[in-house]
Design a protein around this nucleic acid. Structure first.
Lengths: 224, 224
DNA sequence: CTGTCTATAATTAGCGG
DNA sequence: ACCGCTAATTATAGACA
């Protein structure tokens, strides 16, 4: 499997040169596209140990024009929209961290959902929940129940006001029969629940609501 | 389906601005990566109507350093590795055309293969072949037959010299029975034929070889 | 307009010739 | 070294908030 390259100096000289040539190509293409699509003046200068003279885009004159315009600004002006490399990298890192946190969030949510549905199939014993897990699970179950309750209300009202649509949903007190499809791999997202699991699940969910999901000392250990 | 953007000035100003912002980001990131991965000095200057001062990477000093190095070269030197935009675009077009031709080639090959296998299932009547089609089909069939013949030779020799491996392939003179799997969708590539179709097909293919695949006036019409 | 999301297009790392 | 290929990563167009 192709590995995701680490963003740091490529040690192997052959590889480094190859990468350089490929990426320089790509870069010049990007500059060209940017200029063409958006009608802006731009230039790039790349100064490598592989060629005695720097390579530039779009042409010597083009570079000189852009650069002289740049040089004409006062230093104050020049500095205004400037991104120095350190700031740039810091910003990139910040962005990546944000993204990472989002992924962690998603991941945790999936685990909780997985666990919740696992419980409904009676596989509760395998996990040890700490305080945070319990709190999050409770809030997840609550959210789920709210959605279901809301749906039931809507549909009940519809069923009463207009008998033309047959009630789509079983009464919440109806007997529960979950295991008809015992190996469900994907559980639908709670916010986009269509019409699969939610009806007969209700009562069980309510029963499942964790009794002591309260206030143990906050504990950030991630295991769930 | 997201459409492949046409490489020309974006008419809609809002879209153009959005594209500009996104692509400028991407571009600066690429410059950063190139410099980091390959340890080269590089800079980019983008001069847009959206900001009063040009945006640069990696920093004012960085740009000035790279640019002054550039300016120090004699004009002759400067011009050496220069790519002016016109040449650049011409090269891009040439490359794209090459690619296009390769795709045409592939496409034609697929059609011929498709047709050949179609014939083996008796669906020959639907097509009208011109001279070129016939020639290409003949050469395709010949190639195919060569591969098969070669395989048979190899395997026959193996079978004789060492009876430990049972012959994997039927004798070419054996009765033909193609239609056991009548709706084959994918035919394996002729160069990587493993062990599916080729054996019983041989004799039929030979019989199919187009009688008059010869020398009608060259005709470039593409229909097959 | 500015930002987020997602499906698709584009780039490119690693490999084999 | 340089090409071409393909599978993987990355960029981004377009839709939406």
């Amino acid at each position: 499997m192709r590995k995701k390259v680490k963003l740091s100096l490529i040690e192997n000289a052959t590889t480094r040169r190859k990468t350089f040539l490929k990426r320089k190509e790509g870069l010049l293409k990007k500059v060209d596209e940017l200029a063409t699509l958006c009608d802006v003046k731009a230039c790039a200068v790349v100064y490598s140990p592989y060629q005695s003279t720097p390579e530039v885009w779009p042409s010597r004159e083009g570079v000189e024009e852009v650069v002289s315009n740049f040089m004409e600004c006062s230093v104050r002006e020049r500095t205004k929209n400037m991104v120095d490399q350190e700031t740039f990298v810091r910003q990139s890192i910040a962005k990546e961290n944000e993204h990472l946190n989002k992924l962690r969030e998603e991941n945790r949510n999936s685990q909780i959902k997985e666990f919740m549905f696992g419980c409904l199939e009676g596989k509760m014993e395998a996990h040890h929940l700490d305080g945070r897990d319990k709190r999050d699970l409770k809030s997840f179950v609550d959210k789920y129940l709210n959605v279901i309750t809301h749906k039931i209300e809507i549909l009940t009202k519809n069923g009463e006001s207009s008998s033309s649509l047959p009630p789509l949903i079983a009464d919440a007190a109806a007997p529960i029969n979950l295991n008809q499809n015992p190996n469900v791999e994907e559980h639908e997202d709670i916010l986009s629940m269509e019409n699969n699991h939610q009806e007969p699940v209700t009562a069980r969910l309510a029963a499942l609501t964790i009794a002591d999901a309260d206030v143990s000392a906050p504990n950030n250990t991630k295991k769930l």
